[in-house]
Amino acid sequence: MKQSIPDIVKSLTSISLSDMEDVALMKRTDTKFVIHENQLISVLNAVKNAYHVLEIDGKRIMRYSSLYFDTANKKFYNDHHNGKVNRTKIRMRKYVDSDICFLEIKQKDGKGSTTKTRISIDDFEQDLSENSIGFINETTNSDFNLEPIIWNNFKRITLVNKVAKERLTIDLNLVFNKSGSFKSYNNLVIIEVKQERFSRSSPVVQQLKLKQINPYSISKYCIGMLSLYNDLKYNRFKKKLIRINKITA
């Protein structure tokens, strides 16, 4: 019988959210990989003894929903496209199964590190509250005139290394939405390895290397923007789009 991703995930030992505190890694190095969903089964089978899987209320494959914000001239997107090393990303993210929502700010520096800062909010705010605006201004030292720009929904598996300070997220079933227009990437899997500093001794990194899958810089936000906005610069992302379309074909 052919294994399924839920079957393999079910076979892993579990870890609770409170037990993950030691690997929160709010300041970290993120390394991404992209594969076809069919490849994920063999990767999971190869590393399943090295990782715990996050389980919340009996669920191991969680639903996530995000609302990204940007300026009217798409500053955050353009900063990424233009290769600016110090850049910002602002979003609201809801952990759908837990009904928990955060306003999150991710700031990347020129050394490759990412710092994530967040506050809890009651629910999505398409019109930013005074409290949210204050948090954004204080964290970024800037006064952006932000507007909601794109929605993103996906499912996530979170694995935690049993011996090293490392966790990884596996995102599947990506769907982007803007004003009723949708784009889905059902076969695309984005694996993101989160560490204090990049280590090739990571079990998942080693397995991906064996399959000749190398780190691949990609932004869900930028891919979603390119999928639903027609007036954006994209020459720096053209090869990424070609690869993603090839994977998901």
Rank of each mutant, 00 (worst) to 15 (best):
S202G: 12
T115E: 00
F176I: 04
K32N: 04
I157G: 04
L103D: 01
V96M: 04
S11D: 00
S16N: 03
F182P: 13
I15H: 06
R60Q: 05
V193A: 09
L232T: 03
N86Y: 11
K239C: 13
V23M: 02
L54C: 01
I213H: 04
S184P: 02
D7A: 11
L146E: 00
S113Q: 12
T88G: 00
I15T: 11
D19I: 13
G110Y: 08
L128H: 02
H36V: 07
F198I: 03
H52N: 08
D123W: 00
N245G: 05
V204N: 15
I133G: 03
Q207P: 15
S202C: 05
Y51C: 07
S65P: 11
V96P: 08
G83V: 02
E55Y: 02
S16R: 12
F176K: 00
K75S: 07
K32Q: 03
S227P: 15
I247F: 10
Y221M: 02
T158Y: 11
L174P: 11
S98V: 12
H80V: 00
L210W: 14
T117Y: 10
A50N: 12
N49V: 08
K178H: 12
I133M: 04
C101K: 09
T31R: 14
L67Q: 07
N131D: 13
I218F: 06
L210G: 12
S18C: 05
G180Q: 05
D123Y: 00
N49F: 05
S201E: 15
S184H: 06
T114D: 01
T158A: 11
V85M: 14
V85D: 13
V47G: 11
N45K: 10
Q126Y: 15
N214T: 14
W151A: 14
T115W: 03
D70R: 09
N49P: 07
I119Y: 10
E55A: 06
L172N: 01
S217Y: 05
Y216Q: 03
S120C: 13
K10A: 10
D127S: 08
I136M: 01
L54I: 04
I244V: 01
E138S: 12
S4G: 09
T169Q: 12
V96A: 07
I8V: 06
L103I: 03
L232W: 11
N45H: 14
S65V: 13
K84A: 01
Q207L: 03
K238C: 14
E21F: 14
K108I: 00
S227M: 09
L40Y: 08
I149P: 05
D7G: 11
D70G: 04
Y68H: 02
N161A: 08
K59F: 08
M225F: 02
L40T: 04
R236N: 15
S132A: 08
